[in-house]
Design a protein around this nucleic acid. Structure first.
Lengths: 105, 105
DNA sequence: CGTCATTATAACAGCTTTGGTATAGACATG
DNA sequence: CATGTCTATACCAAAGCTGTTATAATGACG
């Protein structure tokens, strides 16, 4: 059980939470994972692909795609690069002192 | 010994190499690591800090900074976020189908 | 030369991410 | 209901990143 989910539920979030570096780190981690999840799902449905088909295009198996779309883990830079390369898309990761955002570019 | 250093020395690099996905991955990995190394060194010297002082600012030890400046490992997104946060800087990671670039923003 | 500050390297542990297989759940369709 | 397709989850192994301590190398300065 994470520190965040212990104290808050759903999307509720107080500014006070950001003062705790542990919570801030957890948020950044899940934020990028979730943003990537959305991008992967978007790409897949827009191209009418199944998870298995997309997995083949990326050289991996279906459960790997399911995991990406679940937003379980913060992706590595290598994973982001691989997606951009194999899917022919451009992504941008914006890092500021108090936020991290992954967007399609 | 990496596949890249087996076949090539220094900065020499042929377009042909990029066709090998293993080499391409290795390049992307070292590219981001090296670009971050440069940014960290720049920040540190511009602020007149020693590795130990910078480490304290980031909540880590001197060898960790040395490793960042050596460009050994591809940084995690969490590490990039931490640098942006603790140093008060903005970074951008640009991912295109055939390149990955980390720049200060 | 001796000392101190600074940086680099080695060795190890711990956690996270990634990948796989196997399998369960959901859902449509015959 | 039976079957087939698609998605989700559990479990394990391999690899990579991060952090630590200890120590070596480097260089400036008395």
């Amino acid at each position: 059980m994470s520190k965040l989910s212990e104290s808050k539920t759903g999307d509720q979030l107080l500014a006070e939470d950001l003062k705790d570096p542990e919570i801030a780190a957890e948020l950044a981690r899940t934020a990028v994972a979730n943003q990537l999840a959305i991008l992967v799902i978007q790409y897949r449905v827009e191209h009418g692909l199944t998870q298995t088909a997309l997995a083949r295009q990326l050289g991996m198996r279906q459960p790997a795609i399911a995991r990406l779309e679940a937003g379980d883990h913060e992706p590595s830079v290598a994973m982001l690069a691989r997606l951009a390369n194999k899917l022919g898309i451009s992504l941008r990761l914006d890092l500021t002192p108090d936020s991290v955002a992954l967007v399609s570019a």
